[in-house]
Amino acid sequence: MTDTPAFPEEDKRSEAPSGDQPTESAPEWLTAFLDGETSGQEKQNAKKALQESSDIRRVAQEIQRVEDLLDFLPLTGSPRAKIGETAGLVLEQSSSQPVVVEGDHSLEERADLSKRTEVPLTRFDPIYEATSLWPKRVRGWLIAVLLGALGAGLVLPGWRSFEDNRAKELGKIRGVVDNFQILHDSGDLDFLRAIDVPELFGQPESIVSQ
């Protein structure tokens, strides 16, 4: 065993081993190298490690043996009849079902379609929007009309009350103007009160006598 070759920082957990300890697990870079997934410096480092470490070579050979054992698993063949049958069935079934359009990921989403998947579909799919947006607009208009009616019901009585009060006030002012000379001559506060609220104090004697 010699020096540990330098490997990129991010691959520390799979650095080539050093010392004489046997390597039981394979580092990631070694598996990647054997899969042809390394290039450049990483590939050179892997070659160097294999050259310098018998442990690394042993592990590499074990991994290759695993690969060779996987070759025992047979590929399956597909008889021409089976292929034709599948294609025919698919075309037949597919013709009776709608073609999935843009925005619908239901056939490709991660397995297990859950609520979490369905929510984005209803939110972003133009088809779902087309069917769900109009009821929302109608509902909005209905709410606006109801609010308007409710507002009118609350405002109209208040407006009537305001108009009545204003007429009363105008009446009082008119009375004051009409009787200005009398008020000016009297200098009597009680008289003024009587003018202001005649139903409470009654018609003052002085005015009646005039």
Partner: peptide, 27 residues
Amino acid sequence: INRAKVRLKTLLAGVLDMIQPRPIEGN
């Protein structure tokens, strides 16, 4: 893939020796 192969190596330890070693690919 690394974890899978390490696991397979362990699981197939009993039959690994049946396979003739071969040169390391690319090396």
